[in-house]
Write a protein that binds this DNA or RNA. Structure first.
Lengths: 230, 230
DNA sequence: GAATAAATGTGAGCAATATCACAATAATAC
DNA sequence: GTATTATTGTGATATTGCTCACATTTATTC
């Protein structure tokens, strides 16, 4: 069973689909990039993407991941005449529905329900990000990694009796980007987790066998599942 | 001259004031705290506050600071039945206007303009936070501190010909909370900045004499001023 | 399926930060 | 104004995490 992440109600997703134009992207290609004009909202129909920022010296931070039924590109959308602050790259082949800024605004104007859910959704993402920052900054690099694994399990996990398999194959490099760590450091910590049989990795798919061990070791409190996501 | 931070248009602030109930807080007191029910929006009328999270072992991270005409408490507000994820503490004596969730929703329903600006404002804060995360995670602790000083100058600075004075007296401890550093580390880096005469501190007020030096040393790109804030 | 590119693992050494333990100031309370 | 509390500074030391340099393995491309 896959736990659902917090998303818009499906009937609103449907209504967004109605006003969108389909578009496809190859694995590795950019949906949009940092510095270009923000004038569309992206509804992911299938596939997975990463939201990332880069620094002049080539370092990369991954702000978030998104999958089917997630919305991407809203941050700068309503700020007039503004540019995207991050880039979005396809991790797999991706199908999106493109929604023009104007069209979205009209739709928001027409549908109070959509506006409500939109505000709720932006608020939720905000809370998630804040809790993530806390974990990344206050729990050391090990804590940052464990927190990220737990969040990925919540967002992308297929939950079995004892194990969770993260159904988004991810590289060590991307885990480094998600945690603000060096690739080598992630590699070493993941090795340790494998040796202790807390996780196993198959074909890029991470399975967590003892997620509670990760949780207790970073003092997880009982955050709402809605917030403990990537 | 004080540069203005990105805020709602003043006529909308006025209309929010109309539907708010005034309340006062002493320096150091909590406007609301982590885990309590989120059912009000706070409009800061005067004074300054900090938004913070704490971990079980007593570490504290400061998510943001806010001053007159800023709104606080929106993150969890629209998420049904949910609790605040952070606490808000008064740094000075603070006057706020309390706006009930229901009242706000009615007002948003009535005023399209307010809704537009509200979405814009949430988007702006989101972009800010994302850029801040990048700086905090990717530029080392020195970079985190410099970035924070620059942002504070943009949000709270009185700009002279060459110098900026941050008109929010802040402790070393709070700077540590803003950057995810240890107090001692901040103390040492600030000492270095003082010795190089890049900053001076008077009575808790930091004046930055060579802000461009800070900017270049962390490879500041030309982010919109709107986003380069605390 | 050979060649090339990308991802991963690993050791050694180093630099940046955290930790600990106090001393010294500065601010606040009574 | 004295006592108390909060803030800041600082040295010594420990630890974490980064960097560099390759070897190895795994994907991709042609």
């Amino acid at each position: 069973m896959i736990r659902s992440t917090s998303q818009m109600p499906s009937y609103l997703i449907e209504s967004l689909k109605q006003i969108s134009t389909p578009k496809q992207y190859k694995k590795g290609s950019l949906l949009f990039s940092h510095g270009t004009k923000a004038d569309h909202l992206y509804l992911i129909l299938s596939g997975k993407v990463k939201l990332l920022m880069t620094t002049p010296d080539g370092k990369e931070i991954i702000l978030s991941l998104a999958q089917a039924n997630d919305l991407v590109g809203e941050s700068a959308l309503f700020v007039s005449q503004t540019m995207h602050t991050y880039s979005v790259q396809a991790l797999t082949r991706v199908q999106v529905g493109l929604i023009q800024k104007n069209t979205l605004e009209e739709e928001l104007y027409r549908s109070t329900k959509l506006t409500d859910e939109f505000l709720k959704w932006m608020g939720t993402r905000n809370c998630r990000m804040q809790l993530r920052i806390r974990d990344l900054l206050l729990k050391g690099k090990q804590g940052a990694l464990y927190s990220t694994l737990i969040r990925m399990a919540n967002s992308y996990g297929r939950w079995g009796e004892k194990d969770v398999t993260i159904e988004l194959p991810i590289t060590i490099k991307d885990l480094a980007g998600l945690t603000g760590m060096q690739r080598e450091s992630v590699s070493r910590l993941m090795k340790e987790l494998r040796e202790k049989e807390i996780i196993t990795i198959n074909d890029g798919y991470i399975t967590i066998h003892q997620i509670n061990l990760l949780r207790t070791s970073i003092d997880c409190e009982t955050c709402p599942l809605e917030y403990c996501q990537i």
